[in-house]
Design a protein around this nucleic acid. Structure first.
Lengths: 181, 181
DNA sequence: CGTTCCATGTAAAACGTTACATGATTCT
DNA sequence: AGAATCATGTAACGTTTTACATGGAACG
């Protein structure tokens, strides 16, 4: 079975909104979707060349003072991108280390697990704050016009992290209640 | 930088609760943690041999009618397992295809995204029902005694899937409201 | 006696990160 | 001038899935 080749479509999806360099693409993922998607340079640059070879994008000369190599999506690229977009998504393969540890922990590990949960909670509180700040900034920007679809990914970040945070607190409460600490 | 070698610890964590075969290990992950962790045979069997070579587990002859090869964790295995358990977790690398698609979608893709969200919602409703059923079964089983830590992973499944479900509904509502459908 | 499930295993390919190398531009 | 950031790229390594191969046990 052919693998999903997500890196190809991720890049195509970014340059579908306008010419971008490899550096731009990385930046865009890190700025907005870092909690749910990331691409490393080690994948981006080789994939851009492959995309060009297959005729899904072509280089454009930039009038930037930097020597950026911008790529513009071609009509063929648009076609395969929209095709991919409408296909059902593949099941996610999460590998959540914290969940694994809790799953395999025994009663004697309650203390260690509590420590992990505490630092997770701290981390989540920070991240939720960052996302909410981003949200209020974005809402000001779009106060009358329709917000773009990527706003939905921001909303997802808030929903999912708040849920994880509530779970963390519940779990800490449960473990403390056992008196095994 | 040394990579985290999670497969090793995942396996060690399972056999820490009693002798298991490669097949058992797979089954246990699929039964309880499938949404947050999975291991394929292509990793499990070679890793079991490596674990044996390193002295973290040893084979035990089974009195099972099947020709299972059970592995039992050694004291050294226990040690490295508990050590790993107490270390801080590495950041997760989610790669959430649905989020990616929504992030890179343009206004003209609203219809395609709505279809994806609708089938995601369906899927989530099924999964939440399954988990809640599992939860009530487990709660009966442990009605007086303290529930094991893996119950927390079940709770996480419910929390996170319900959050994703609520987000799905919110997103569908938003996209419909735009009149772009 | 055939089908289904149990059970172990390997090889190849695909995927993804990390570390390194290189050099230009911008800012202080 | 020096530091920080921008920018492209590659090689090595580690991780993970997929496809294939093999055969025994249970069940109707």
């Amino acid at each position: 079975m052919a693998r999903s080749n997500n890196t190809l479509y991720a890049i195509l999806g970014i340059i579908a909104h306008g010419p971008r360099s490899g550096y731009d693409i990385r930046k865009q993922f890190n700025a907005s979707l870092r909690f749910f998607w990331s691409e490393s340079y080690g994948q981006i640059y080789p994939m851009l060349k492959q995309i060009e070879r297959e005729g899904y994008a072509e280089p454009v000369e930039s009038n930037d003072s930097r020597r950026k190599k911008l790529y513009r999506i071609t009509p063929e690229g648009q076609t395969v991108f929209r095709q991919w977009l409408s296909e059902p998504v593949n099941p996610i393969n999460y590998r959540d280390e914290l969940l694994l540890k809790i799953f395999v922990a025994g009663p004697q590990d309650a203390k260690a697990i509590l420590a992990l949960l505490a630092s997770e909670r701290e981390e989540l509180e920070k991240n939720v704050a960052v996302l909410k700040e981003q949200e209020s900034q974005a809402l000001q920007q779009y106060h009358n016009r329709v917000p773009p679809t990527w706003m939905l990914t921001l909303r997802y970040g808030i929903h999912s992290m708040e849920a994880r945070l509530r779970w963390c607190e519940e779990a800490i409460h449960d473990l403390r209640g056992k008196g095994e600490v």
